[in-house]
């Protein structure tokens, strides 16, 4: 089965700055990959590349069977990205924002109520986005991401701003992703929380994927999970 994500020597420029300077990465179906690295390492740019929001300058990038060099748009309906902003409209209610996203993604009978309940948003259905707290907005962003029933979920610092209940709901989504066949690429600085939820970890530094976490550090959080790096495939091979 082809990987959901396949990057080879992927380069992205932000202006003239190489935000990604030759990244290799494979993500298999149902895999949860944690991207770690310092500020400015290129983690957010990598997520935006996978979503087709920033152009690929050189190398190759295949996401969900689509060549991003040729067509960076067609796969977007199949993925969800939760970034630093919610992507919601201030004057629409929680339910209206979710419904618009679901209908736009082509869901005929979207599981709106189910998703709203999952993220504890049912009591806030009729509240406009502008009146939500930061944590509630974050939950709404996750609800919108999930109502699209994505095959690939891209999360940028997903635990930031969430309370314990919200974090638990998010963790449940991540824990259930392998069995649902949903791949996840997750950027986080909260490694203690994110490592146990991930299949493996890729470290980005200065726009390049490299480095392996020390085994003992990883073993503290998850004994049985494989440890891979440099954007390698689950089998450890690298193109």
């Amino acid at each position: 089965m082809p990987p959901v994500v396949r990057l080879r020597s992927a380069v992205c420029l932000l202006g003239r700055f190489p935000a990604l300077a030759g990244v290799d990465l494979d993500v298999a179906e149902g895999e949860v990959v944690l991207l770690s690295g310092g500020n400015g390492a290129g983690k957010t740019t990598l997520l935006r590349l996978l979503a087709g929001l920033v152009p690929l300058r050189s190398g190759s990038a295949w996401v969900l069977g689509h060549d991003l060099a040729e067509d960076p748009k067609s796969h977007r309906r199949l993925l969800s990205l939760v970034g630093h902003e919610t992507g919601c409209y201030d004057d629409l209610t929680v339910a209206e924002n979710v419904r618009f996203a679901a209908r736009a993604a082509g869901a005929d009978a979207p599981p709106e109520q189910e998703v709203l309940q999952q993220f504890g948003l049912t009591p806030l259905c009729d509240v406009v986005h502008a009146r939500l707290s930061a944590g509630q907005r974050r939950r709404l962003a996750f609800a919108i991401a999930m109502v699209r029933t994505p095959q690939l979920l891209l999360l940028d610092e997903p635990h930031a701003g969430l309370d314990a209940e919200g974090r638990a709901a998010l963790d449940a989504v991540l824990a259930g992703s392998p069995s649902a066949g949903r791949s996840v690429v997750l950027v986080s600085h909260e490694l203690e929380r994110s490592r146990p939820l991930s299949s493996r970890e890729v470290v980005l530094t200065a726009g390049q994927a490299h480095g392996t976490l020390p085994d003992p550090e990883r073993a503290e959080t998850k004994d049985s999970r494989p440890t891979l790096a440099r954007g390698a495939t689950p089998s450890g091979s690298r193109a």
């Binding site: 979503a51 929001l53 977007r76 309906r77 993925l79 969800s80 990205l81 970034g83 630093h84 902003e85 919610t86 992507g87 919601c88 409209y89 201030d90 004057d91 996203a101 736009a104 993604a105 082509g106 986005h129 907005r137």
Partner: peptide, 17 residues
């Protein structure tokens, strides 16, 4: 301007519409 709030323009690009 409503698409400039909260990163809604990216949301629109990703919507699949």
């Amino acid at each position: 301007s409503i698409e400039a709030e909260n990163g809604a323009r990216d949301g629109l690009r990703l919507s699949g519409l």
